[in-house]
């Protein structure tokens, strides 16, 4: 065994008040892929990435990050949560938020120093938000907020990144910028796991995909796994297909009652 898999999940079950949200999940994510997690609403997509980071307690199962339990590997993992998980009226600046990504490396009590600020500014440059460093975060648009969150994760200089719906409510220009950065990360050998809501862009953006609906429906390279059959299984028939320039693409249709 040369390099361990980025993520290995065995028998993961998560319940919320007696209802199963994730059921008996086995999952292997190799290192260096850019993977999408897709599924209908309530499929457990946010839950699974939280469970993989020990942000909630599973009813059963275990997770290994690069071969070891999560709490031993924290320094290797970066997290970009949903934009809505935070109150953007908080009195702080863009730079300040990005600096929070350095807190893990600093540990308790120590304050960010000059090198931390430099790293933060570089990350901001990468997401094209350098000029906004001193801006109050309440003045940012949705796309700008997303980029700040991304910069915060980049500053952690992690090997594995989790992102929860980073393209939700974001303008086209920002979306292109973000996916560019994610592909760069992959080229650098990082692993990126993204909860994604737009089926149409899956083949274009990602090389791996996991289809989830409480159970794991399928997981693997996009070309192998992103098939009509699997999509039907995941979405229960609420999917419409269109063929577009030879590439098979799918769109989540409206609910047929």
């Amino acid at each position: 065994m040369s390099t361990p898999n980025a993520i290995e999940v065995r028998d993961l079950t998560v319940a919320y008040r007696e209802k199963p949200v994730l059921w008996d999940i086995d999952l292997t994510v190799p290192t260096g892929v850019l993977m999408a997690i897709v599924g209908p609403n309530g499929a457990g997509k946010t839950t699974i990435i939280k469970a993989m980071q020990s942000l909630l307690k599973p009813a059963a199962g275990q997770v290994r990050i690069f071969g070891k339990p999560y709490h031993e590997q924290r320094k290797l993992v970066g997290y970009v949560p949903q934009r809505g998980s935070v109150d953007w009226d908080f009195p702080t600046s863009v730079l300040d938020v990005v600096l929070m990504g350095r807190y893990g490396a600093l540990g308790w009590i120590k304050r960010p120093r000059k090198d931390d600020r430099t790293l933060a500014l570089e990350a901001l440059k990468k997401v094209a938000m350098h000029d906004f460093a001193d801006r109050q975060i309440s003045q940012l648009s949705g796309g700008q907020q997303q980029r700040v969150f991304l910069a915060r994760a980049l500053v952690q200089q992690a090997e594995l990144y989790f992102m929860d719906e980073p393209f939700q409510g974001v303008d086209a220009k920002t979306e292109r910028a973000i996916i560019g950065i994610l592909k760069e990360l992959r080229s650098a050998g990082k692993t990126v796991v993204v909860v994604h809501h737009d089926l149409q862009t899956v083949p274009e953006y990602f090389d791996w995909v996991t289809l989830l609906n409480v159970r794991r429906i399928a997981s693997g390279p996009v070309n192998d796994v992103f098939t009509e059959a699997n999509l039907r299984a995941a979405y229960g028939g609420r999917v419409a297909f269109k063929s577009q320039s030879g590439l098979e693409s799918a769109v989540e249709g409206e609910q047929v009652s």
Binding site: L55, P81, T92, M100, Y103, L106, W108, P112, Q156
Partner: peptide
């Protein structure tokens, strides 16, 4: 003053703080 950044983290994004290991 000592725990300033931890309190800031707690107030702004506690879940992110957990993910960082605090």
């Amino acid at each position: 003053v000592l725990f300033w950044k931890e309190f800031k983290l707690l107030s702004f994004d506690p879940e992110y703080g957990v993910s960082l290991g605090f």
